[in-house]
Amino acid sequence: MVSNTDTAPSEGASEDGTGQGPRHVAIIMDGNGRWAQSRGRPRLFGHHAGAKRVREIVECCPSLGIKYLTIFAFSTENWKRTQVEVAGLMSLFRRYISKEMKALAARNVRVRFIGDRVRLDAKLIQLMDQLEEETKGNDGTNLTIALNYGGRDEVARATKRLAQDVAAGKLSPDDVDEETLPKYLDTHVLPDPDLVIRTSGEARISNFLLWQSAYAEYEFIDTLWPDFTAEELGRLCRGYGARDRRFGAVKT
């Protein structure tokens, strides 16, 4: 495995960490259920509206200089929701992949999935594999979809694989440091996120990209995900560019 993950500014950032928009944006897409309920509709109606919003956001990434977009679609904790909602979400994921596969490939989007696939149904896994295969040659926007993903679960799985390599003699315990673990994470081929956005007014990170976001900038906004627009994303990206990012250093 080769890792592009580190704690330095990602490619495209200036040396002092200012004046550039984010190259990698990660989004916690929250508020679909509340959006639907405020309109007297079932929660799944909001999830369908949220899925449609994903297309607009993906399409606007090139014009905003966003090379990597990571979206939180379903967490390891979301299995606690009602059986009806979980089943509806799984059906939505299958439908979204089937419907969007050709469009994503045509728009030169490279799609990857992160998370533990063990609990997902065989048909969904097959579609995920197919979408990754169909888009693996694309070099435009890198869209990463976190599905049955949890940051703690990811670190636990990575640590287990690392321990297996140590036990097999492939890795010395003395060589294990903060540069080693990222090579075992689901995101090992991706740069760390520069900007993490959470919609819907909640101010927590909900177990999302815990290791990778150590030096990310955060934006917690009131907008519910189905109402989130390309214009608002552009505003947040411009705000990011105005921030002073020192990565623990002090300007001289």
Score class of each variant (00 low, 15 high):
D244F: 08
P9Y: 04
A73N: 00
S63K: 11
E179F: 10
R41L: 15
R53W: 09
E202Q: 08
W35S: 02
L120I: 00
L92S: 14
G88Y: 02
N78Y: 04
R204P: 03
R235I: 12
L44T: 01
L195R: 08
T223V: 15
M128T: 14
A214K: 07
G88K: 01
S98A: 14
T252H: 14
T144L: 09
K80G: 05
T70M: 09
L89P: 04
D116Q: 05
I114F: 06
C60V: 14
P193E: 03
H48N: 03
E133F: 11
F208V: 01
S14N: 12
A105M: 02
T252F: 12
S75L: 00
L143N: 09
L131F: 02
A158G: 12
T76L: 11
N108K: 04
L124T: 09
L64Y: 02
I57F: 04
L44C: 03
D194H: 09
L89Y: 03
A26T: 10
A26H: 04
R246A: 15
G239E: 13
K52W: 02
A216I: 03
N4E: 10
T135G: 03
M1N: 11
L190V: 11
V84H: 12
R81P: 09
T229V: 10
G50E: 10
V25Y: 04
F208S: 03
P173G: 11
T18G: 08
Q126G: 14
T159G: 09
V86K: 12
D175L: 14
L143C: 03
V176F: 10
K170R: 14
M90P: 00
Y218N: 05
D30E: 07
P182F: 12
G19D: 12
H48V: 06
M90L: 15
F72D: 01
V166N: 14
P226N: 07
R238P: 04
G169Y: 05
N207C: 03
R95F: 07
L210W: 02
E154S: 03
Q126Y: 10
E85W: 04
A26Y: 07
R94Q: 13
K80D: 08
L120T: 05
D129G: 02
C237P: 05
K123R: 15
A106N: 07
D139L: 01
G137F: 03
D6Q: 06
R112Q: 13
G248D: 06
N207G: 03
A8F: 14
E132L: 06
V111R: 06
A36E: 08
G201L: 01
L236W: 02
K183S: 15
A73F: 01
L171R: 14
R243D: 10
G239Y: 06
P226L: 07
R94W: 01
R238I: 12
L171Q: 06
Y184Q: 09
L131P: 01
E202I: 00
P42A: 02
R245V: 09
K102F: 11
K99C: 08
V118A: 07
R204L: 04
Q83Y: 10
F113Q: 10
V155W: 00
L89M: 10
N142V: 15
L236C: 08
D30N: 01
L64E: 03
E154H: 08
Y184R: 06
A73E: 00
G40H: 14
T252V: 15
R81G: 07
A249M: 06
A122Y: 09
T18R: 05
E178L: 01
I66E: 07
A26I: 07
E15N: 05
Y149H: 01
G140Q: 04
T229R: 07
E15A: 12
V25M: 11
V109P: 01
K170H: 13
